[in-house]
Deep mutational scan, measured.
Amino acid sequence: GKMTGIVKWFNADKGFGFITPDDGSKDVFVHFSAIQNDGYKSLDEGQKVSFTIESGAKGPAAGNVTSL
């Protein structure tokens, strides 16, 4: 299901970062391709987001990332 969290950091040049889930679980990798907006796909440190957990090739990653 949907989770919420805070963006820990995001490197716009490399197109990835990490989200710290509100439930205290392990930080989740986020790739820019998972960001659900029409414009420039980037996130800001400290931004609140909702997301799902998808299993990627390198382990769990955030999917369906939407800013709240």
Rank of each mutant, 00 (worst) to 15 (best):
V28Y: 06
G63T: 08
I53A: 05
K26Y: 09
G15Y: 03
L68N: 13
F10M: 02
K48N: 10
I35W: 09
Q36C: 05
A34R: 06
I6F: 11
P60Y: 13
S55P: 15
G1E: 11
S50R: 06
K2R: 10
V7M: 03
F29R: 03
Q47I: 12
F10A: 02
K41P: 08
T20M: 15
G1P: 13
S42P: 06
K41C: 05
S33F: 06
V7P: 00
V65L: 05
E54V: 15
F18C: 03
G5Y: 01
I19M: 02
G39S: 08
F10R: 01
G39N: 14
G15L: 03
F10T: 02
D38A: 15
T66Y: 09
A34S: 12
Q47A: 13
T66I: 14
A34L: 03
V49L: 03
G15I: 02
G5M: 00
D27A: 07
Q36L: 13
L43W: 06
D23K: 07
E54K: 12
T52N: 09
S50H: 09
G39T: 07
F29W: 09
L68W: 07
H31R: 04
F29Y: 12
I35H: 03
G15N: 03
H31K: 03
F32G: 05
K26L: 10
F29C: 02
G46S: 06
Q47K: 08
G46L: 05
A62D: 01
T20V: 14
F10H: 01
I19H: 00
L43Q: 02
V30E: 00
D22Q: 08
I35V: 10
S25N: 09
T20S: 11
F51L: 03
T52G: 04
G56I: 04
P21V: 06
K14Y: 14
S33P: 03
G24E: 07
A34D: 10
Q47L: 07
W9P: 00
G1T: 14
T20K: 13
S42L: 10
Y40F: 14
I19A: 01
F29K: 02
E45F: 15
Q36I: 08
F32H: 13
N11F: 06
L43E: 01
F16T: 03
K58I: 14
K14P: 02
A62L: 02
K2G: 08
G56R: 04
H31G: 04
S67K: 10
D27T: 07
G24F: 14
F51M: 04
N11Q: 10
A12T: 15
A62G: 04
T4D: 05
F51S: 00
Q47S: 09
G1Q: 08
D38N: 11
T20H: 10
H31E: 03
A12F: 12
V49F: 01
S33C: 04
S55M: 11
K58G: 15
T4M: 10
D13Q: 15
A57V: 11
T66A: 11
A34H: 06
G59N: 09
T52V: 15
A34T: 09
G39A: 07
A57D: 14
D27P: 09
G24T: 04
M3V: 13
S42F: 14
T52H: 08
G24L: 07
A62S: 03
E54F: 09
H31M: 05
K41S: 08
K48D: 04
S42I: 14
D27H: 06
V7L: 03
A61D: 04
L68Y: 13
D13N: 11
K2Y: 09
K26I: 13
D13V: 11
A62Q: 01
K48Y: 15
S25R: 10
P60M: 10
G63D: 10
K8F: 04
G46R: 06
G46A: 04
A12D: 09
I19T: 00
V28T: 03
D38Y: 15
N37P: 07
H31P: 04
G63H: 14
S55T: 14
K2N: 12
D23R: 06
P60F: 11
V7K: 01
A12Y: 09
G15H: 05
N37S: 09
L68H: 10
A57S: 14
I35S: 03
Q47V: 07
G46M: 05
S55L: 15
N37H: 12
S25E: 08
V28N: 01
F18R: 03
I6M: 09
W9S: 04
L68Q: 10
G5T: 00
L43I: 07
S33A: 07
K26Q: 13
G46T: 03
V7T: 04
L68R: 04
T66L: 15
F16S: 03
I6Q: 08
G56V: 06
G46P: 01
T52S: 15
E45N: 11
I19W: 00
F51R: 00
Q36K: 14
G24R: 08
Q36H: 10
D22M: 09
K26F: 12
P21H: 03
K8L: 12
L43Y: 03
F51K: 00
E54C: 04
S50K: 10
G1A: 13
K26S: 13
D22K: 08
N11V: 05
A34Q: 07
L43M: 06
F18L: 04
M3Q: 10
A61W: 08
E54G: 07
S42Y: 14
Y40D: 15
I35Q: 03
I6H: 09
A61H: 13
S55F: 15
L68A: 10
F18W: 10
N64L: 10
V30Q: 00
S50L: 08
P60R: 14
P21C: 04
G1L: 12
D38P: 13
I53E: 03
S50F: 06
K48H: 10
G39Q: 12
F32E: 08
K26V: 12
F29I: 04
Q47E: 14
G56T: 14
K26E: 14
D27K: 06
G15E: 02
K48F: 10
I6L: 09
K8M: 05
D44R: 15
V7H: 00
K8G: 03
L68D: 10
I19K: 00
S42V: 10
E54A: 09
A34M: 06
G1S: 10
L43D: 01
A12H: 12
V30M: 07
G39P: 15
M3R: 11
F16Y: 11
N64A: 08
G56N: 14
D13A: 13
N64M: 13
F51A: 01
G39K: 11
M3K: 13
F16L: 05
V7N: 01
F10K: 02
F29M: 03
V49K: 00
F51W: 02
G17I: 01
T4K: 08
I35F: 07
G15F: 03
K2A: 11
A12R: 12
G15P: 01
W9F: 10
K26M: 13
G59R: 09
G56K: 05
F18E: 03
V65K: 01
V7F: 02
F18S: 03
A57Q: 15
T66K: 09
V65F: 01
G17M: 01
V49T: 02
K14W: 15
N37C: 05
S25V: 08
E45M: 14
D23N: 14
P60W: 10
F16V: 07
S33V: 05
G1R: 06
T66W: 10
D38T: 12
D44H: 15
V65E: 01
